[in-house]
Design a binder for these strands. Structure first.
Length: 426
DNA sequence: TCTGGGGTCCTAGGACCC
DNA sequence: TCTGGGGTCCTAGGACCC
């Protein structure tokens, strides 16, 4: 059997952990740049704050209902996420935990007898809560998709389920599928949901009984096939090896305010490349393709919000590298090419791809030899930046003023990862 | 006035090969 | 006037996830 373990309102729970007075208060956390609402406590949901709406639209309701608001604090969430996952790794056999996102993981439970699954799930949930202070919900079934169905229902009916649901009989599975709308199935997004509704397929139960050929034709070929098999209890989405490295690494940001000068664009791209290269080195990889893009401000024409069209371009490097300064130069040159005088920019980003393991970087017959002393230099900079604070050492291209940086006006202290921001108790 | 960031997988279609 | 078949590789873009 497979379980999915999911932290309840994760970002909000992290914020509350250090402010116990907010334990039962409505809380929301905003996306980067204080743009949208990305996490809500149950109390915030109850007073009617919707998920994903722009902050400025929800602001009035938030103030009126006394909802506590935080900018996102990824240092804090990342650290607490690690603690939750580490706790689970200690409670389960080696290799049984697949971290799926910052607040979720799949676990294999094949070593637990079927009639013990509920008791064991309670044990996992209680231990995580006791060791980390974070509450989780657990769904268990024969496939990933079905465990997601179980998890969602458990979380929706906390009082009745104690946040745990095990689907271990054909009857319980059928009932759960009947209670799940198509758009709530893992793998069905807006487009597919709309299509399914048109064919009068409204619940997961309806979808499960569709013929394979129909699903193949209408739901993205083999993606749909896999989903259908999973709904029918046949495992078709494998557990992933957590050690597999990323195939692309992106760093992209909205600007805190409108950006118009070429210098600012170049600074931003240099800063993003620095971040992306750090991520690259952390997984001991090197990249040989750099994609750089900028997004101009969209002309306002009423109706639905959308970004302007992204303007971007590639550079293929002669050999893969993880050195910031080897990446920065071509990236900034490309940014300068993309820049257009008189244009107002809202967002920019870099994506590194063609990623290979660092030790097996292919030599290039026609390019100069790779200077090896870079690696030691980069390693030293990473260590100093990690231990002291971000960017105590940085490349000059990245700028010193950075007046384009994102807004984060409501960020809580990084309680668990910075000495100078430790929680103080009088 | 103000709308996030970072990923994965798959498909279709073009270029190119013999 | 007549113009094949089969395959691979690459890229752009779509759909999805949290």
């Amino acid at each position: 059997m497979i379980g999915i373990i999911d932290c309840n309102s994760f970002y909000c729970s992290c914020e509350r952990l250090f402010l116990p007075a907010l334990q039962h208060a409505p809380v929301v956390v905003l996306s980067n740049n204080d743009g949208c609402i990305v996490s809500r406590s149950d109390e915030a949901k109850q007073v009617g704050v919707a998920m994903g709406v722009p902050y400025f639209q929800a602001k009035q309701l938030i103030e009126q209902k006394g909802v506590h608001t935080f900018s996102s604090n990824y240092n804090l969430y990342g650290d607490l996420s690690w603690r939750v996952m580490e706790t689970l790794r200690q409670l389960l056999p080696a290799g049984a935990v697949e971290v799926y996102s910052v607040d979720e993981c799949f676990v294999t439970l094949d070593h637990i007898a079927t009639d013990q699954l509920t008791a064991f799930s309670i044990h996992l949930k209680d231990t995580v809560e006791q060791w980390t202070g974070i509450k989780v919900s657990i769904g268990v079934a024969t496939t990933k998709v079905l465990s997601k169905v179980a998890n969602r229902l458990a979380k929706k009916n906390k009082a009745a389920t104690n946040c745990i649901m095990v689907l271990d009989s054909p009857e319980s599975i059928a009932e759960a599928l009947q209670r799940t709308a198509v758009e709530d199935i893992w793998g069905i997004g807006r487009q597919y949901a709309e299509k399914l509704r048109k064919y009068n397929i409204n619940t997961a139960f309806d979808l499960r009984s569709m013929p394979a050929a129909w699903v193949q034709k209408n739901l993205g070929g083999i993606v749909g096939q896999r989903l259908l098999r999973e709904l029918n209890g046949i495992p078709s989405i494998e557990m992933k090896d957590p050690l597999i490295n990323k195939k692309m690494i992106a760093t992209t940001r909205m600007f805190g305010k409108n950006v118009t000068s070429k210098e600012q664009i170049k600074e931003a791209i240099a800063t993003y490349i620095t971040r992306a290269a750090e991520k690259l080195r952390r997984q001991q990889s090197a990249a040989s393709v750099i994609y750089v893009f900028v997004i101009p401000k969209q002309e306002h024409q009423g109706g639905k919000f959308r970004h302007g069209n992204s303007v971007g371009g590639y550079v293929h490097l002669p050999h893969a590298t993880a050195s910031t300064h080897q990446l920065i130069k071509p990236a900034v040159a490309l940014a300068a090419q993309l820049y257009q005088e008189g244009c107002v920019y809202k967002k920019a980003g870099v994506i590194l791809s063609n990623i290979v393991p660092d030790e097996s970087v292919q030599g290039n017959l026609f390019a100069d030899k790779i200077p090896q002393q870079n690696r030691l230099l980069m390693h030293t900079i990473d260590n100093i930046n990690f231990a002291m604070r971000n960017d105590i050492i940085q490349f000059a291209t990245a700028g010193t003023k950075r007046n384009w940086k994102m807004r984060q006006e409501l960020r809580s202290p990084r309680y668990t990862s910075r000495w100078e921001e430790l929680r103080e108790v009088q």
